[in-house]
Design a protein around this nucleic acid. Structure first.
Lengths: 164, 164
DNA sequence: GATAATCACTTGCAAAACGCAAGCGATATT
DNA sequence: AATATCGCTTGCGTTTTGCAAGTGATTATC
C-alpha cells in the first residue's frame, strides 16, 4: 500500500482516475475545462506518471491528430472498488454535493455499480456515471438518474460530445 | 471526494490511518519507529490535520503523562472499507509483501474482515490485523495468521507492549 | 534528589514540488 | 494563408516537504 501511495499520494492523481472512470473524461482539455483547477504542467506530469504505473494509457485520436485520448487500463479500472468506497465514505462523512439517496442506493448495490462501471469501460461507453459531477463540457450527461437501475439501453458509443 | 482528497491528498495521511487501523499504532513514537521514514514535523502536522477533520482523536496516557494516545474516531474507522479495497488492489497489481493467499481470502471475505476491524476498534483491542506489516515495536504481532478466521479469543486488552 | 532518558513535539534551513502565466510545435479549421 | 485548437514545456515565485537539531515536560535511574 505504501507503493500505491507513491502513485496516489498527491492531490490530483486519484481525481484524474475518478474523472476518467465516472465522468467520461478522455482528453487533456476535458480536465482543463472541468473547473477543478489543475495546472497544465501538473496534469501532464500526473498523466505521465499514471501511464508509467500502467493505470492509464494514451493514444492519438484517429480522426484528429492533435487530440490524445486517455483511458484507464485494466489495472486502472480495478480501482473502481476503492473509488466507490471513498465516494460512499465521503458522502456519509463529508459534505459533498452527492444526492444522499443515490449514494445510499449505490452503497446497497455495490456489485451492480461496479459491474456497470466495468461494462462502460469495456464497451468504451463514454457516458458519465455520476450525473451530479457533470461530464466533459458538451457531453450529454448520463441517462438522467444515472447508474443503479440504469437499464436504459441507449448503447450508442457516440453519445454526443459537441464540436471536434 | 474532492473534499476527502484535501485530507488524504498527500503521501502520509492514509498511511497514518492505516497504521492506526491495522497495525495497532497509538503513539507518536510508534510511527517514528515504524521505519516508514516520516519526519517529526510532518507527522505532527498530519496528526493535527486528521484531528481537525475528526478522523483521529488524541488523549494523554493516564499512566504516563508524556505519552499521547492517538485513536481513530468513528469517522476514521469507517475508512476501513476504503483501506481494504486499496489493500486488495495493491496486492493484485503492485508487488507488496502481502501473502497472496491471505489477501485473496480477505477479498472473498470482506464483510468479516470489516466486522473484525471494527470490533477491535470498539473493544480497543490493540492487536495488529495484518501480521506481515508488523505492529509497533515490542508488540506481539496478532494471533499468527491474523484476521479472517481469527476466532482465537484472547480477548485481553493488555496484549503486551513492552517497556512503558 | 540530582542526572539522565524518553516523549511529543517545534524551529531553522535547504531542497523539492506546486501553481501560474506565457510560449511552442503540430494539426485542424476558415 | 491566416487563425484557432490541442497537448504540452519552460520560467519563476510560492508552498510544502524533509532533515537535523533543539525544547519543555515527564519519568526512570543512580
Amino acid at each position: 500500500m505504501n507503493i500505491s501511495l507513491e502513485v496516489f499520494g498527491d492531490r490530483w492523481s486519484l481525481l484524474i482516475v475518478r474523472d476518467l472512470m465516472v465522468r467520461g473524461f478522455r482528453s487533456f482539455q476535458d480536465f482543463m475545462d472541468s473547473g477543478e483547477g489543475i495546472a497544465t504542467n501538473i496534469l501532464a506530469h500526473r498523466l505521465r506518471r499514471l501511464q508509467r504505473a500502467d493505470i492509464v494509457e494514451a493514444e492519438r485520436d484517429a480522426s484528429d491528430g492533435r487530440r490524445v485520448n486517455y483511458r484507464l487500463t485494466k489495472k486502472g479500472i480495478d480501482l473502481a472498488a476503492v473509488m466507490l468506497e471513498l465516494l460512499i465514505w465521503g458522502a456519509q462523512h463529508e459534505d459533498t454535493g452527492a444526492p444522499q439517496s443515490l449514494v445510499a442506493e449505490m452503497a446497497r448495490n455495490r456489485e451492480a455499480v461496479l459491474a456497470e462501471t466495468q461494462r462502460r469501460w469495456r464497451e468504451r461507453d463514454p457516458r458519465p456515471m455520476l450525473p451530479w459531477l457533470g461530464g466533459p463540457r458538451g457531453a450529454a450527461s448520463g441517462s438522467g438518474k444515472g447508474v443503479a437501475g440504469d437499464s436504459t439501453n441507449g448503447r450508442k458509443p457516440e453519445a454526443g460530445r459537441s464540436k471536434r
